[in-house]
Each structure stands twice: as C-alpha cells, then as structure tokens.
C-alpha cells in the first residue's frame, strides 16, 4: 500500500475544524483548568505539563494524520 498524501483525506472544512479544536484546547477557559499555582506533577507546575504534553500530543496526531494509509478523518 503506497503512501498517500494528506490531501486524500482532509478537506478544507475538516482542516478548519482541526485548527479550531487546537485553538480551543490551548486557550481559556480550558487552559484555566490547569492554571493552578499550587499543583505540581513530577515537580513541574501543572500548567507547564499540560501545555507541553498537549503540544506533543498534537504533534503525534499530525504525524499520524500524515502517515496512515487510510485517513481517519474522512
């Protein structure tokens, strides 16, 4: 099975939806859930963990989207 370009599986509307979801996740009010000064995870402030962790997840998602032979989005 050959590698397919992303174009086969995403169209404009879905891209916009994706970008919208990204922005939503990285902004208030969702960001506020993790914006707690006294909370730590592994000695790191929770906000930092959330932002960097989510960031990494987004990258993994993008990678997945650009590689899988049959797109999940369509």
């Amino acid at each position: 099975m050959g590698k397919q370009t992303i174009s086969r599986k995403i169209n404009g509307r879905k891209i916009l939806l994706l970008v919208f979801c990204f922005i939503l996740l990285f902004n208030y009010p969702i960001l506020g859930i993790f914006n707690k000064p006294s909370l730590f995870l592994l000695g790191i402030p929770l906000l930092y963990v959330y932002v960097f962790g989510l960031w990494l997840l987004v990258i993994v998602g993008l990678f997945y989207l650009s590689r899988t032979p049959k797109g999940r989005l369509k």
């Binding site: 174009s7 891209i15 970008v19 990204f22 906000l47 990258i59 993008l62």
Partner: peptide
C-alpha cells in the same frame, strides 16, 4: 512566565491551515 510560548504555539496550531493555504 509561559507567555513566551504563544509565539511558537501559534504556528503549531495553524499548521493544518498553513498546509491547505500553501498548496
């Protein structure tokens, strides 16, 4: 603090649209 990140989060979040627009 973490404010500086926005400059790099922006491109990350917009990259699907960038892909579409650049094509």
């Amino acid at each position: 603090g973490i404010d500086f990140l926005t400059i790099f989060l922006g491109p990350t979040l917009v990259i699907p649209f960038w892909w579409l627009l650049m094509r």
